[in-house]
Design a protein around this nucleic acid. Structure first.
Lengths: 175, 175
DNA sequence: GTCAGTTCTGACCGATCGGACAGTTACGGT
DNA sequence: ACCGTAACTGTCCGATCGGTCAGAACTGAC
């Protein structure tokens, strides 16, 4: 039952947004009562938190792992790690995007803007040069939106094209 | 008064999302009663429509103008036109993104996904090759997110870096 | 059988939402 | 002074929201 609820919530949040999905809708989809949701998860936000926590932890782990890498190698590692993560958690990414104001105000999800800044810093190679900073922001948006949307391309191809495209955006030689 | 309402709504929608902004909040910000909002605009959605219509019309006009252009020249024209539009309507872009499910279900806003497809087609040069299609989607997301977010770069520089970055993403020689 | 504990539910609650409506105020034309 | 119209508001309404609570239903242990 608990698993059914999470599955329903993930699907509904991804297609209708967090605030656009009522507890009633989740209950109906999961085939249980609204009160049952609150029994398993004390609040609606707790469901969201449980859905997004694994992705958040992996992202934080990725960011920590990147700090140890030197110079330009870090750029490619950031791009591939980020693309892999976004592809693996497509629907979670979509949820994160469809209701940004709700998400960034949720303390349980960690400091999302700060994580974004770390990724931008890693991809811009720590440089403050406008071209690199803008490029890093562009890659962030490009990967997120492309993974959240439905592009009619097999996952393996999508992965390679995303990485190649991102490296081109950053003006990276390996691209 | 009507102008005050639109100004308040634009600001609040952009920072809190459409469904995250109540009529009461708009009225308080604009310094009038909730009933006055409904007097000037018959519904909450009508306010949203009036806010987004100019940007939507310009985008549709851009798409129409692009159809007349030949081959590769169309790619650069699409990128520059799209970047200029997104920069000019930053807050409108943010609104569009922060509440995607609400937006794509609003018939008054036109067929947003179809417009996106036209832009993707123009930027991929009409090719079905996965690399170009993915690249076009990436540019769409990159420009949107970068314009909606706050990047600490002057507008003029941002514009040039966005165009250059987008053309690099697309693997365009002029980039 | 029965008892304790977990799982689940129907009915209910207060808050808030978008919107309706009758009525008041401000004002220019005659 | 009178009136028609546009601008505006206070108040109320039904719907829906997230969440509470007392109790029913099922479960294995003894």
């Amino acid at each position: 039952m608990r698993g059914d609820i999470l599955r329903s919530a993930l699907r509904l949040f991804a297609s209708n947004g967090f605030s656009g999905t009522s507890l009633h809708a989740i209950a109906a989809d999961a085939g249980c009562s609204k009160a049952s949701l609150i029994y398993h998860f004390s609040t609606k936000e707790a469901i969201l938190t449980e859905l997004l926590t694994p992705a958040g932890e992996e992202l934080a782990a990725l960011a920590a792992r990147l700090d140890a890498l030197p110079g330009e190698e870090r750029v490619t590692a950031t791009v591939t790690g980020f693309v892999d993560l976004a592809l693996r958690y497509r629907r979670e990414v979509k949820i994160l995007f469809e209701d940004t104001p709700t998400m960034i105000c949720n303390p349980a999800l960690g400091d999302i803007p700060a994580l974004g800044q770390r990724l931008v810093a890693a991809m811009s190679g720590g440089s403050q040069e406008p071209g690199r900073v803008v490029g890093a922001h562009m890659v962030l948006g490009a990967v997120f939106v492309t993974c959240a949307g439905e592009v009619d391309v097999p996952d393996g191809v999508l992965r390679e094209e995303l990485i190649a495209g991102a490296l081109r955006t950053l003006g990276h030689p390996a691209g």
